[in-house]
Design a protein around this nucleic acid. Structure first.
Length: 785
RNA sequence: GCUCGGGUGGCGGAACUGGCAGACGCAGAGGACUUAAGAUCCUCCGCCGCAAGGCGUGUGGGUUCAACUCCCACCCCGAGCACCA
């Protein structure tokens, strides 16, 4: 028997595909053809593009990319116009850190890594449309990233402000809230500290309501939607004014935000955040100022995380001499400061209702403040009587957008002492990242770009006077906010201005129909990209409200030890090794066969052998079989086509692979097989194991490429077996089985069941009380016991 | 604490709308072939039992002729959020 020489087969077809790739895998341009009338529609099948790290492709990449490749191939064979592109998200710290260490320019590092990644992707037989390849670090690409920033800037959605920020001292840059998890830098795991720095900020909060409500329209995993909902954190309530009363004299108002105006009668004290500006104003009235000042100082010195970690044990200080009057019942209550009240949320002040709020109760108990039982009031009535303002608050905060690092898109702004922040004129884009000798971050508010005087010093575009460039760069996430549009722009021209020339392609291809990627981007990339897309929608660039209609998350693949793969645990499985040992088709097949796509699953080093053996068996299958018509074979084909087709549509690739295995096992038992069986089987196998399927297809004598073949159809009647196994139960226990014709009625089933071997042991016909008959399944005799 | 997933053989997992639990694969056992090993092929493979049979889908209860599937209570694991007023 010939050996399944996967290396030879895979190389051979990869060569042929490379020659034909633009014909085979290029989507039709929308302006030529693509008629929706014949059931042919567009499908935009998108992978989350990789960061081309020095480690090369990971088996986790292979999982998601195989899933989308199966989908793309399947849809193409079904006659659809499929766009399946790939590119590189190449700005960011790892390339820069590597560059610092090895003294190689990051662009060279990135170039080498991309080359390696691309080879790896091709070695796995993915059917990407490489004509549309993009790279976020290409100046022609990032000029558009800068252009979008400028549109945001012009609409007032990008602004500079001094704000408290998260600073990562090991990455030496500011981070966004989304990049900080548990007080730790998402990137390097280092502790973050709080600093007040002047930064560029994007007003994502202006889109909070739409980012939240439009989630409903998306076919996304509920988990991801829920994470975004939590992150946006909408709450409805009202702003209520309390009056300060010091020595019984009115001293201005204090506004609080509450979601529970109905509990206002139970307010027994007031708490304000230590940072609240009113404290300074009331200073002269506060009798224990020294104590208060000390508390404020200690609160400010702590990071938000530290405050929260200590948060179980509440702390606070009363403002002696300061009271507020409850507008509902005119009662005077004391005012406290405590760091469990956050300055940046609501008004930074809370009316405390210990009866109803757990945190208030904890605080009240600790400091012996009264807890009163009170009537719950009609919410609307309270709001109306007090003239309170209904408000909606969000947890979401604006996106801190500048980074003090080299390897990112320069922020296209010129700072003029006279004119302020001035946008770089569109015709001057891109603002190219200049070559520098040292990439080391400065550690301060400037990026290494600040050291290049020639680059920094420019004329103000407005007044012509001396001015300086902004030296901060954009964060990692900027380039990935719009890359799915860049693939489309490739179809028209090579990123030329103006934007209007791209609107037809955007209209045709958007939204992305299937977006496959890891769940780790749930509140980073996926939130940011939705924000930018909505902005582009508002300024008329794109015509859909959302970028990604359907999202599929592949589950993490763990190491053989059940732990997350990592170099330090040395449990990383390298896809190259697997391709070398078992072949690309085996790797693809195994990763799909491991379990449901979305599940987290451990890598079983032996597991890949199963699919590999299966492919080797297919390779030699049928060599000693007679060709001929065979009804059982026909039914087997139809059954398998149905199962595999439906499974692919539902992303149930594990059971699709298993159906292919079952079909082979069953076919081996048949004496003759028709030509048609082999043909159809090749087509079904093709999306999963394209190299072998194509090889077998050509061995069958076909000159065509399977990419251009039509996906098989099935006949519902033939997809069902003629007969079934009738389960015979007595008192709901299975006591026998008989083969019966489909559609058999109760009377015949009963007669048949009586003839089952050994039935007289279990069944006395005179004692039958009741018969339950389930068509094409079972008959259950209920007898007296 | 809250929210969302999930708990099925030694392992990964399968099971339509409530209808044979354990498909498919890995591992394991026995056999064939081989000087041998490997590869390949055949048979077995949830647990108890010689068998007949009984028991089995996290635990306890319920509904039903029939429950992995539906209902109630609880336990455990994973992910996310977490002083957001």
């Amino acid at each position: 028997m010939p050996k399944y020489d996967f290396k030879k087969i895979e190389k051979k077809w990869q060569k042929i595909w490379a020659k034909n790739k633009y014909k085979l895998w290029a989507a039709s341009a929308p302006l030529r053809g693509a008629s929706a009338s014949q059931g042919r529609r567009k499908f935009y099948v998108l992978d989350m593009f990789p960061y081309p790290s020095g480690d090369g492709l990971h088996v986790g990449h292979v999982e998601g990319y195989t899933a989308s490749d199966i989908m793309a191939r399947f849809l193409r064979m079904n006659g659809h116009n499929v766009l399946h592109p790939m590119g590189w998200d190449a700005f960011g710290l790892p390339a820069e850190n590597y560059a610092i260490k090895k003294k190689i320019h990051p662009s060279i590092v990135v170039k080498n890594n991309i080359k390696r990644f691309k080879n790896q992707l091709n070695s796995l037989g993915f059917s990407y449309d490489w004509q549309r390849e993009i790279n976020t670090t290409d100046p022609e690409y990032y000029k558009w990233t800068q252009w979008i920033f400028l549109q945001l800037f012009k609409k007032g959605l990008a602004y500079e402000a001094e704000v408290p920020v998260n600073w990562c001292s090991s990455c030496k840059t500011v981070l966004s809230n989304e990049e900080v998890a548990d007080g730790v830098c998402e990137r390097c795991g280092g502790k973050t500290e709080r600093k007040n720095l002047k930064q560029w900020i994007l007003k994502i909060t202006a889109y909070a309501d739409r980012l939240l409500s439009d989630l409903e329209s998306l076919d996304w995993p509920e988990r991801v939607k829920e994470m975004q909902r939590n992150w946006i954190g909408r709450s409805e309530g009202a702003l209520i004014k309390f009056s300060f009363s010091c020595d019984r004299i009115y001293y201005g108002d204090l506004e609080v935000f509450t979601t529970r105006p109905d509990t206002i009668a139970g307010v027994t004290y007031m708490v304000i955040a230590p940072e609240h500006p009113v404290i300074e104003k009331l200073k002269s009235k506060i009798r224990n100022w020294e104590k208060v000042a000390a508390y404020i100082k200690s609160a400010k010195s702590k990071s938000e995380k530290e405050r929260q970690q200590e948060g179980k044990e509440k702390t606070g200080v009363p403002l002696d001499g300061v009271y507020v009057i409850n507008p509902w019942n005119k009662k005077e209550v004391p005012v406290w400061i405590a760091d469990y009240v956050l300055a940046h949320y609501g008004t930074g002040a809370v009316m405390a209702v210990p009866q109803h709020d757990e945190r208030d109760r904890e605080f009240a108990k600790k400091f012996d403040l009264p807890i009163i039982d009170e009537p719950l009031l009609p919410k609307e009535e309270v709001i109306e009587k007090l003239g309170a303002k209904k408000t909606i608050n969000y947890k979401l905060r604006d996106w801190i957008f500048s980074r003090q690092r080299y390897w990112g898109e320069p922020i296209p702004v010129i700072k003029c002492e006279k004119c302020g922040n001035i946008a770089v004129p569109e015709e001057d884009l891109p603002v190219k990242l200049p070559q520098v000798k040292k990439y080391e971050p400065t550690g301060g508010v400037e990026s290494p770009l600040a050291g290049i005087k020639k680059w920094v010093n420019v004329k103000c575009p407005k007044c012509g006077g001396a001015a300086k460039r902004e030296t901060n760069t954009m964060p990692q996430w900027a380039g990935s906010c719009w890359y799915y549009l860049a693939y489309l722009m490739r179809e028209v021209s090579n990123f030329q201005f103006p934007i209007s020339q791209y609107q037809n392609v955007f209209k045709h291809w958007l939204p992305v129909d299937i977006y496959v990627g890891g769940v780790e981007h749930a509140v980073l990339h996926l939130l940011y990209a939705r924000f930018w897309h909505k902005f582009l929608y508002d300024i008329g660039v794109v015509s859909t409200k959302e970028p990604f209609a359907k999202l599929v998350n592949q589950g993490l693949i763990l190491g053989p030890d059940g732990q997350k793969m990592s170099k330090s645990r040395s449990n990383v499985v390298n896809p190259d090794d697997m391709v070398e040992k078992f072949g690309a088709d085996s790797l693809r097949l195994y990763e799909m066969f491991m379990g449901p796509l979305e599940d987290v699953k451990p890598w079983d080093p032996r597991g890949i052998i199963g699919p590999h053996r299966f492919l080797a068996r297919i390779y030699n299958f049928g060599r000693d079989k007679k060709t001929g018509e065979n009804e059982a074979a026909v039914r087997l084909v139809h059954k398998t086509v149905k199962k595999v087709t439906e499974d692919i549509k539902n992303f149930h690739f594990n059971t699709a692979v298993s159906a292919l295995m079952i079909a082979l096992n069953d076919a081996e038992k048949l004496e003759t097989l028709s030509k048609d069986f082999y043909k159809t089987y090749c087509k079904l196998l093709f999306p999963f194991a394209p190299h072998l399927a194509q090889e077998l297809w050509s061995l069958l004598g076909h000159k065509t490429l399977l990419d251009e073949e039509k996906w098989p159809e099935w006949d519902e009647r033939l997809a069902e077996e003629e007969s079934f196994e009738l389960i015979i139960q007595v008192n709901s226990k299975t006591r026998g089985k008989l083969t019966a014709h489909r559609g058999i009625d109760e009377t015949n089933a009963k007669a048949l069941a009586m003839t089952a071997p050994g039935m007289n042991k279990w069944l006395d016909p005179s004692k039958i009380k009741r018969i339950i008959f389930v068509k094409d399944r079972l008959i259950n005799f209920i007898v007296e016991s």
